[in-house]
Design a protein around this nucleic acid. Structure first.
Lengths: 229, 229
DNA sequence: GTAAAAGTTAACCTTGTGTTAAAAGGACAA
DNA sequence: TTGTCCTTTTAACACAAGGTTAACTTTTAC
């Protein structure tokens, strides 16, 4: 699909930002619609059925989270991809955003190039994921992960894991049976610039095993861990 | 091998990052090539045959995953080591989505020291890994090795070997029938800095023979060992 | 036959991991 | 702000699998 086949809806209460975003995205060929408040955005969304909505989190009256929830509640817009715009630093808004059903968050300020590539990556899901969004229905035996909702299902039962545990499990789960070295785990879950003690991973592994069962995470001594089953 | 013997190809759409990475790697003596986009990177890869490619995942037009797949598809580049650069917090599913397989993930921002040590560790595999990785599919009669999962298959049955045994077997297996001298084995499996007793290899060979069958590892007296069948 | 190399075994050491509890850190509500 | 609850990290120790050694035996090449 060409960029021009995609409709984007941008929502931000600051006209300047809106202007900046839409300029850059129109330059890439996207069809861009804009709105400066949540109510208007919902109305517009219903009208144009955008493929993707880029939502500022912080807005007066109705914030991005609420708009997101409202969109998710609307069956006709069920396949819309929602990305949040947040000011750097607020971790919580990110989580709240995912819980509300967001697909990605992008921190302001954002460089045009970065913005475009993030959105392109998101839009790819439409093609590759015809009917995606692992609905909470598709649950059976074993472990399932719903990243949108930050939930882990164990034999159908939903578990709420803390952030680090969730990320660790999600990483291992993303490629079952692949052995992840401690270095890889640190890098992906903690990042390469913070340093934590040797036993930190072990403790999280311990807690995960407590919650999802002892046999799902296997230790390869001297090498790393892997998810099995 | 010296650092200066290695050619690295860095691919990132942000020149600043490219600059930062190449500066630090050149300082270590590596031969560094850079590219700001996927297409160019592929062309350059073909040209210089790098030992290792460091790929940003998020890039406009052609992202790192695509580049990786393309490289893996190219026979002439089959032995290239691929490491991904990702922003911490990027969706694992995107990273997990590729089956082509990177060898490592490194998160941005990364400290020079960490970067260098990770890359050095990866480059070590070149010597010890003459033949490409084997996918888990190829299971049948005889012995198969899956390095990613750290499993050895004997007639289809999966065996869990301890690290040293696995590495030793993987080495011999990597070039069936080639005789590896004890010196070679020490150097590849133990490294040139550690010194262990004469009989250490023998003991590991003994254990391997117990597990995979007596006839798979043949002794060439006065010369070394080789894997057969 | 003999010496050198490799095989074998079990004891011993090492190192990575498991485990627990407690401290530190953070978010939220009163 | 204070206090509370939850998450994350640290610290200290336990423990076992893995790795090595040493002593001895067997094999092989010459």
């Amino acid at each position: 699909m060409e960029n021009s086949d995609y409709r984007l809806l941008l929502v931000d209460d600051e006209p300047d930002i809106l202007e900046f975003l839409s300029y850059n995205l129109r330059k890439e060929g996207f069809q861009v619609f804009t709105s400066t408040n949540g109510h208007d955005a919902l109305r517009l969304a219903n009208e144009v059925k955008p493929h993707l909505v880029l939502l500022d989190v912080m807005m007066p009256e109705m914030d991005g989270i609420e708009v997101c929830e409202e969109i998710r509640r609307n069956e006709r817009l069920s396949n819309v991809i929602i990305a949040f715009l947040t000011a750097r630093g607020e971790d919580y808004s990110q989580i709240a955003g995912f819980e509300a059903g967001g697909d990605d968050y992008i921190t302001k300020p954002v460089k045009p190039k970065v913005l475009v590539s993030r959105l392109k990556a998101l839009l790819k899901r439409i093609d590759s994921n015809p009917s995606p969004a692992i609905s909470s229905e598709s649950i059976g035996e074993g472990i399932h992960i719903d990243k949108e909702r930050f939930l882990v299902y164990k034999d159908g039962e939903a578990l709420n894991l803390p952030k680090k545990e969730f990320e660790l499990l999600a990483l291992l789960f993303s490629r079952p049976s692949k052995v992840f070295s401690r270095d890889e785990i640190f890098s992906m879950v903690w990042g390469d610039n913070i340093i934590v003690g040797d036993r930190t991973i072990d403790v999280h592994i311990r807690k995960l095993r407590e919650k999802i069962g002892e046999d799902h995470i296997k230790t390869i001594k001297g090498v790393g861990y892997k998810f099995v089953e």
